[in-house]
Structure formats: C-alpha cells, structure tokens
Nucleic acid binder design. Structure first.
Lengths: 201, 201, 201, 201
DNA sequence: CATGAATGAGCCTTCATTCAT
DNA sequence: AATGAATGAAGGCTCATTCAT
C-alpha cells in the first residue's frame, strides 16, 4: 500500500515536471511561431537540461501534441461550462470558440501542423482523433440546442470547419492588428452561427 | 526606342526564367511537403544553379509567394470561366473551389504559411492582399448570383473562410485516404453553400 | 568466523548479481552489435536500475571485459573437454575454435575492442593477459599433440592469430550469409591446421 | 574543348580538396582511434568548415572508406614494386604486408570497422570488394611464386587472414611497446610464410 | 549573368555517468 | 544497497544564403 502511494506520488511528481515543461514551452510560443522554438530554448526556459526534457518527452512532436491536447481540453471544458448559460446557445458557442482561437494562436497553428504536415505515431493519432471527437460532440450539442434534428453531425463538421477557416483566412492578414482580427473574426463567427441556426430545412 | 524594345525583351526573358523555376518548384511540391523542398532541389529540378535562382528570387519566401499567387490566379480564372455556366451558381462555385484545394494542397499549405507564420515584405504583402481581394470578388459575385443583397462582402468573407476551414479540419485526418477527404470536404462544401444560398434575411 | 561466512555469503550474492547482469547483456549482444547496446538496455534487461548496475561495475568497459573473459573461459573449457577425444587433434581444435568464433561474434568483436582500441586499467590488463595465456596453452598443447617440438609457443601464437584473422577477413564480407561465412572460415581453418600439423622441420 | 579542359581542371581541384581532407583526417588518426575522430575535428584540421567537408563526402563512413581504399592502393602498389625483387618472394611479401599494418594501424582498424560492423552502401561495398580482390591477387601471385599450384586462391585467403590475425591478436597487447609488437608480429609473419611456402602437397 | 563551393550556426537527439534520496 | 532522474557535452548532419570567379 505504501508502494502504491509512493507510485502515485512519483506519477504526480512526473506530471508536475511535464507541466513545468509545458508551461515553459507555452510561454515561448507566445513570443514566436511554435515551429521556430527549439529544444534548447524550451529546456532553458524550463530551467532544466536538454537531457531532462527528453526524459519526459520522446521528441518535440510529442511535446507539441501534449500542449495541443491540453489546449483542446481547455476549450472543451470552457464550452461545457458555458453550455446552456447563454442564449442564443449556438452563437455563444461559436463566439467562445473563435475567441479561444484568437487567444491561443498556437493551438490553431498546431492544428494546422498536425492535420496538414505532421507525422503522428498511431498512438498519437488516436489521442488526436479522440480529442477532435470530443470537441465535435460539443459543437453538435450546440446544434441540437437550436432544435436542428437532421444531419447534425455533418453540420457540426461544417460549422467546426467554418470557424477554423476564419483564422487561416484572416489571422495574419497584412496590415491588421490583433484587435482588428479579433473583431472581424468574431463578427464573422456570429454571422456563420446565425446561418447554421436558421435551420432552413 | 531600340533600348525600350530590348528592355521589354529582357523583361520577357527574365519572366520566362522565373516561370521555369516556378514550374520546377511546383513539380517538386507535387511529390512532397513544400516546407521540406530545398533550394538545391528546386535549382536542380529547374536545371540552373543555386546562384542563378537567387538572381531571380531574393529568397525562398518570394518564390513561394510567386507560386501561391500563380495558383490563386489560376483558381480565379477557373471561377471566371465557369461563372454563369452552371446552376446553382454558388454551390457550383464552392465545389469548384474545394476541388481546387484538394488538387492543390500546396496552395493551401502556403496560404497557412503566409497567413499564419510568414514575415512578408510590404511589397509582398500588397501583392498578397490584391490577390485575396480578387478571389473574394468572385465569391461575392457568387453570393450576388443567389439574389442576396445585404452584407455581401461580409458573407463572402465568411464563406471563403468556411471553405478554407474544411481543409485544415479534414485534410490529413488520420486514417483517411485522399479520396475520402475529397468526398467529405466536397459534401460539406455543398452543405455550406446551401446554407449561404438559403439567405434567411 | 561468523563474519567470514557472512562475507563469503555476501561475496557469493554479489557474484550472483554480476552473473545476472552478464547474462542480460549477453542476450542483448545476440541481437545487436555490442557497441550499440546501452547501459539502460542492459539494466532493463537484467531487471535492475542503472544505479545498481554501477554498483557492480565501475563502467561499461569493465562489464564488457567480464563478458569477454567469461566467453574465453567457456572456449577454454570446451577445448579441454574435447582434447584427446578427436583426431586429428590439431585440426579438430582449430575447427572448434573457429566454430566458437562464428557462434560468438561478440567475443571476437570484443577482442578487437580491447586489443585495438581499448584503454584498460592495469588490473584489467592483467586479467586479460592471464586469460590469453590460458587459451594459448591449449593451442600449444594441440601443437604438441602433433609431435611438433620446436618453437611450439611461437607456433601457437601464429596459429592463434591465423584463426582470429579468418574472422576479420571474412565475417561480414559483403554479400555473404552467416552460413557462407561459417563454411568458408571452417574450410580455411582446416587448411591452416593442416599446414601447421605438417610440421616441415 | 575549352569546356572539357575546364571540367578536368575542376575535377582536379575537387580531387585536391578531397586529398586535403583525407590528409587532415589521417593526421588525426595518428593521434587517436579513428572512431573517436569527429567531423568537427577533421574540418578544423583541414582548415575548412563542416559544411564544406560535407560537400566532398556525404558522410563520415564515405570519408573513412576513401582513406581505407587509398591505403589499400598504397600497399598494393608497394607489393607490386617489390614483387620479384627479393627472395624468398612469399616471405618478403608477408613481411612487407605486416610492416605496412604496423605502420598503418588505422588501415587495420578500418578493415575491422567495415568488415565487422559497418553499414556500407552497395556502391561502397563494391569498391571495398574490388580492392580486397586486388590485394588478394598479389598474395596469390606470391603463392604461385613458390611453385604452389593447387588451391592457390584458397591458400591466399588463408594466408591473408593469418597475417591480418596477427594484428588483432597482438597489436594492443598490454605491456608491449609498438616496437615489441612490430618485432613479434614480423617474426610470426615469417613463420607463417615459411609454412605456406613449405607446400606439403 | 551564371556559377556552385563555402559557410557555420543551428538542428534534434543520445548516453555514460553521477548523486541525492 | 538500490534507485532513476538529471546532466550536458558531444554527436552527425542540414541548408539558406553569399560571393569570388
């Protein structure tokens, strides 16, 4: 029993370390494109050696995936928290999500990285898939909340895509400030939500 | 006057060279992710030296931008050609565009590159902006064709984003073949087009 | 006196642990080149921690040397066992030895490691020297068995070298299977044995 | 024609550079085990950058192979030069070869590296094979010179192995000076040569 | 204009060994 | 005695860009 408790402690300690590394990496991502962040920088920023970092993550992509999934969990939790509290439900959900993307560009960049270019291990691919489904569930729930009954999963896919598309289309638009971007994408998210909510069946 | 003609000739010659390089790069992109293509490979594929390549392009990003814009021109031309020939107009346009993205993943990846991560010179940014506007004009025209009158530019933005989003959300989805992707994104594009065409004003 | 017995027990226990580690390492060498085996792998394979391994061996080279010497003991025992049982004695001995080398490439690679590149402590060097002499004694005995009387130690050296040389010259020869190697080296070992047995004094 | 001459010049220049790198590497090998020599050290010693080194050699193993083959060429030329000039021919050849090995331990270490552990490209394997055959031809010629007619190729293999074996068996023998080694291996080489020359058919 | 050799900072990753617990 | 996390120097290699010819 003591052994079990010890193991739990160790596991906790290990998770703490991983979180430390994760936070260090995230703080770097705030300053620059995540693809240009190096192992050295992350290790230094976390106050550990390079070797130690590799004790916790087999390679950079695993670390990146962990951050991505942490972020995804976070947005899922946020959506769950606000579900049913605001009306209209779908519009509120869309605006929450697009706000999240504006606040977490790294999440969005990583989505692009893993979805377009990445070479994922099958274990990693599964984790990614699972998380995407969880996210999609919330969006589908938002659609249900609008009393839409037909093709809800498909519509969730379409809506999810449409929101994601706002960022690739406008996030780095030359000559716009982050605040401009936020306003524009939020407005467009609202417009898109309305379209989906209108339910022209 | 002779000088002028000579200049024109030179300019033409220069453009020919650039086209040669462009085509070489494009043929490489067909085989592999554009971020993993090296200058050496492009030069070799174009049958010129690295130094010569740099006589025509100041750096890789300029070359990439050129390719991106060439692709954009191409899709604009395609949209112009099919405009008014097929009905329903907007749905046809959307499916054309998503088909183009499926066929030209490099275009899409570059859009992500420039919109999310890139550091463009202001001249380059302007060229990019101009081209995006031209593309947007066609989409707006498609919306007009559905007899939608209000907020057409905004809706064009929303629609453009929604279509782009399909790729980042589903291209590369683990376990799907390119053909699966194509079918799914085309279907979703149709659904999105219908929503926009429904015009619930 | 009780202390003495306890000491002996401890010593025995210690030796058991060393044997455990040795066997783990050997089983790894069967699968891959010994230079590419890591401390971590050996520890894991032995079911102990890295730290514990270092309680029993000051460094990797000491472990390697121990394995080498264990292997050497083994071949010496084999030669003793078959001595006088087969005729012609020398040829039989040579074929036994070359068979052993084919079956224990690690032994041979380690011989190369220690004889060509290694930096041995003087204690280690002495252990190595002792074992080589023991091996040489058996070869010299084989030469005596052919009624050769002159320069027998020198001839033992020459014969030992000649047999060792078969491996560096043919093991790993590009395009040959392990079985090809075994046949070729065995045949050559027979030829060499005949030359030494011919005794042209 | 000018182009051809220019090409030849360039080729020559390229070869000069490779020779420069080769010599730098060789001078390092004189001081330490060739496996512990690094790319950085070789580049520095050759007065060039790391990148430049890689312009001439795709990887370290290619460089090592080149050095090995250069050395092999050198011993082949030496054997050709002395062929027929000294008697007894075979003994002289053997002593020449063993002297060469004593003077060029790196050659011997590399032989071990490529024959035992190396991962050669097939092109490299072919170059290696060709050179080994050339060397073997000389040894076979030496056997012919002793009026031995039967199994000469096989005997060449055996003799070649026997000589190579002298080094792995004695080159690093603990407590011996290089001069001790040289004397002992030379003496044994003579003994071996006599055995082969005795031709007990 | 064309060439392509030269550059070298920078990349990710490995691994024998140590030492606080 | 046993542990295994931490270390960090060192490894081989890449590649956009420059510049002397």
């Amino acid at each position: 029993m003591a052994g079990k408790a010890l193991d739990a402690l160790k596991l906790q300690e290990r998770q703490n370390r991983r979180d430390l590394i994760l936070d260090a990496a995230r703080s770097l991502f705030a300053k620059k494109d995540f693809r240009s962040v190096t192992v050295r920088q992350i290790a230094k920023s976390a106050g550990i050696s390079i070797g130690t970092l590799y004790n916790y993550y087999a390679n950079l992509d695993e670390l990146f995936l962990d951050i991505f999934l942490k972020n995804a969990e976070s947005i899922v939790r946020q959506l769950d928290r606000q579900a049913g509290m605001e009306t209209p439900a779908l519009k509120s959900l869309c605006i929450h999500y697009i706000t999240f993307l504006n606040d977490n560009m790294t999440f969005y960049q990583m989505m692009g990285h893993f979805m377009l270019g990445g070479t994922l291990s099958s274990a990693a691919a599964e984790r990614l898939d699972l998380m995407m489904r969880a996210l999609m569930d919330r969006i589908e729930a938002g659609i249900h909340a609008e009393n839409i009954e037909s093709d809800t999963r498909l519509k969730a896919h379409a809506l999810f895509s449409a929101l994601n598309g706002l960022m690739i289309s406008y996030a780095g638009y030359p000559g716009r400030t982050p605040d401009d971007i936020r306003k524009h994408t939020t407005r467009l998210a609202g417009l898109i939500a309305d379209l989906f909510a209108a339910n022209p069946e």
